[in-house]
Amino acid sequence: MQTENYLIRKPSLEKLFNDLIGGGKTIYAPKAKGDLALFSDVKTYSDITEDYIVTANSAKLVVFPRTEKLFSYHKSKEKTEITDAAGSTFPDVVLWGTRPCDAAAFIPLTDTFNGDYKDIIFNNRRERVFLISFSCSRSDEYCFCTSVNSGPGNTSGSDILFTKLSGGDYLAEVITPKGQLLVSENSDLFETKSEEDKEQQLAVVATRFNQVEIQAKLQNLFENPVWDDKSRACLGCGSCAYVCPVCSCFDIQDEAHGNKGTRLRCWDSCGFGLFTLHTSGHNPRETQGARWRQRILHKFLYVPNKSKIAGCVGCGRCSRSCPADINILDTLTSL
């Protein structure tokens, strides 16, 4: 649909938030914790922080929680009763304060869960998520959204994108029919928009590499010293994958208590030594270098080969959170 522009006054933002809460929505928004901002279940508008470039955790948790119940079972003498979690009622969630990169991440993430198998639980959650994003007026050296087809004011994936204007009010770009519905339900808060320049409010994020060139280079780089060189300090944790808004590897765990139990889907990370370890004891990715290669190839070769877009949105979370300061841009620009 054609993007429609409106103006929303600063005080109306709080009113919109309260109306959504009053309407029974669960709102995840950035909340300060020490020096960090974390997407958290927020009930009060004043709990939201505006002081963040991106949050430390990613918004994927609302559609792909770190632990997701797939089904529960109960065994008795006569039969085993299975309750499929896909039949559960999932909450209506508003993601408030996502950045354009966060919103863009929902596109590759949704692709992953809709390949050969359409993941019912993921799709049920996704359908109930409404994204109210805020453009970026600040960036840092870890940001590279413009190198992966996004940008500080990109609208992809969002239902509504707010951009703070110089007077303190916000430009509201309504991107989807869901967004349009919200505007019509709250028409008193949205004014017909003037043609103010959005671009001048946005952060400048330099283009650091050409994604198509990287993809072409990676075809022939499977055996290359760069993987060991760039991952030498890797501590083998899963921080990069767990803060990533696109990473979607998971592991299945059964938790049994007597004659009943649950099957859970838990996040997994290619950084772990246990990742792809075979029962035989053989691991095709035995070293951190091989695991780091997997991470880069997955995002910049395998995903784009399949669906044209990268499995990365340039948010820079992996680099910011890495306890060993391993930087994905550093690897990509040195290929």
């Binding site: 770190r66 083998g236 944790c237 767990y242 996040w267 306890p323």
Partner: peptide, 24 residues
């Protein structure tokens, strides 16, 4: 509450050198 078990605490600790951690 915000722990997602990335095990960065384990990875960064010089004394967490077990080749196979109990949690695994």
């Amino acid at each position: 509450e915000s722990c997602f078990k990335c095990y960065a605490c384990r990875g960064a600790c010089p004394l967490c050198y077990c080749t196979r951690c109990t949690v695994d």
